[in-house]
Design a protein around this nucleic acid. Structure first.
Length: 416
RNA sequence: GCGGUUGUAGCUCAGGGGUUAGAGCGCCUGACUGUGGCUCAGGAGGUCACGGGUUCAAGACCCGUCAGCCGCCCCA
């Protein structure tokens, strides 16, 4: 019986693992510089947590949850997103006392959504993200967006542009929905059943529809920005000023809407043309009501999530993946009789923290050189009868081919 | 969840009813029995995704399942 990885999941193989390590290392370093502290939450949560936060009618909750009952008859769900779990933990452990601001991040956290897989869309995927809790200031939004952009730039994506919008507060959205439905009435009257249903559930969805007829209609639709409350508009304006001052490239995109119900005011995303239909690399926004909804105090907050698999696809498409780390030296030896002697050298070098590979099978010297070549080790040290006699090794630099004789007790230094 | 498309060696693919299924790359061994990459020679490696059916005969045709990909829905 042969098995394959479950549908929509991917193995990270050794040739790629260093890329993940690099992304995680860079993300930790950057978020640390901004004062974010890592949080790790369980892979599953009470199902109700996601229903309350993302919203009963959201696609994530209504059709994409990995929900199951445990042996104690509890309804649990593999987390489809990380904001709600992080905020659950924040409330549970009182991580953000009234009047303070708390910065949290998560690194390659696993997420599960039961959807039809395609390139860039998996049933298990990973996100790096941050949450800035406790501030209503547009400076908080600006900081979060800045972290996302600086991170992508740091990885080598030099032309990233943030797409930015404000969807206001509930009252504003309520009014705008009606205006939008009215505008779309002629279109909806002759639209397909599922389109009408979708419009009924969430009229804002019409805005980013890919249907040409809908797009044409939306081009002449009133903008939500004209319906924002005065204070929302003022905050949105100030956010743009802050982004400009920080030299964050952005465009206002009134059509963007997010799929989770908890978003308020600022929403944003970063797209890439290298991802096909699943073009969003990063998405986020403000959620001023969520924490209260989860039983905490009214803490206005903002955050983003970034898809690691999608990020890697983009980096790969522009040739920006880092080279694999190289072993420092391959210890080759001539014949099985010299293996113990070779291993003694190997042990000594490793004890000094040097990355060393060697052959366990005592194969021919030619074979060992080939192994060394494949391992991309920087050096090969050859140990044979002659070297034993003189207390040396023959040290070969693999890139140049230069070879010289080095005393055994000077080997570690010669590798430097 | 809907529509389409593909599945043959580790990888990229050829073979589209007729003996023991092929190529390139990769892998292993060898070409002065102490030296990688280049070249040459040899070798290993396949339940032709899986299960059923049609046929004298199926890798090929039909049905189902599983999986990948493309689009939609949605999203990271």
């Amino acid at each position: 019986m042969r098995f394959q990885a479950p549908r929509g999941t991917e193995d990270v193989l050794p040739d790629r693992a260093h890329v993940w390590q690099w992304i995680e290392r860079e993300f930790r370093a950057l978020t640390h510089a901004y004062g974010y502290r890592e949080i790790r939450t369980p892979v599953f949560e009470d199902t109700e947590l996601f229903i309350r936060s993302a919203g009963e009618t959201s696609d994530v909750v209504s059709k994409e949850m990995y929900e199951f009952k445990d042996k104690g008859d509890r309804s649990l769900t593999l987390k489809p997103e990380s904001t709600a779990p992080a905020m659950r933990a924040l409330v549970e452990h009182n991580l953000c006392p009234q009047g303070t601001v708390t910065r949290l991040c998560y690194v390659s956290s696993a997420h599960y959504r039961y959807d039809r897989p395609q390139k860039g869309r998996l049933r298990e995927h990973h996100q790096c993200g941050i949450e800035l809790v406790g501030s209503p200031s547009p400076a908080a939004d600006a900081e979060v967006i800045e972290v996302a952009v600086r991170f992508l730039q740091r990885l080598g994506l030099m032309d990233v542009t943030v797409r930015l919008n404000s969807i206001g507060r509930d009252e504003c959205r309520q009014r705008y929905r009606e205006v939008l439905l009215e505008h779309a009435k002629p279109y909806l009257d002759q639209a397909a059943e599922d389109v009408r249903e979708k419009a009924q559930k969430n009229p804002l969805r019409l805005l980013d529809s890919k249907d040409p007829a809908a797009q044409e209609l939306m081009a002449t639709a009133p903008s939500i920005l004209d319906y924002l409350e005065d204070d929302s508009l003022a905050r949105f304006t100030e956010l743009q000023a802050l982004l400009s001052a920080a030299e964050i490239p952005y465009v206002v995109a009134p059509e963007i809407v997010r799929g989770l119900d908890y978003y308020t005011e600022t929403v944003f995303e970063v797209l890439s043309s290298n991802l096909g239909a699943q073009s969003a690399m990063c998405g986020g926004g403000r959620y001023d009501n969520l924490i209260k909804e989860l039983g905490g105090s009214a803490l206005p907050s903002v955050g983003f999530g970034m898809g690691v698999e999608r990020l890697i696809l983009v980096l790969e498409s522009i040739g920006a993946l880092p080279a694999a780390p190289r072993p420092k030296v391959f210890i080759a030896y001539h014949g099985e009789e010299l293996r113990a002697e070779a291993f003694a050298i190997v042990r000594q070098l490793r004890a000094e923290g040097i990355a060393v590979v060697t052959d366990v099978d005592a194969r021919s010297l030619k074979s060992q050189l080939r192994q060394a070549d494949k391992s991309v080790a920087e050096f090969v040290a050859v140990l044979g009868e002659d070297e034993i006699a003189s207390g040396t090794v023959s040290l070969k630099h693999m890139d140049s081919g230069d070879q010289r004789s080095v005393l055994r007790n000077e080997l570690a230094g010669a590798l430097g």
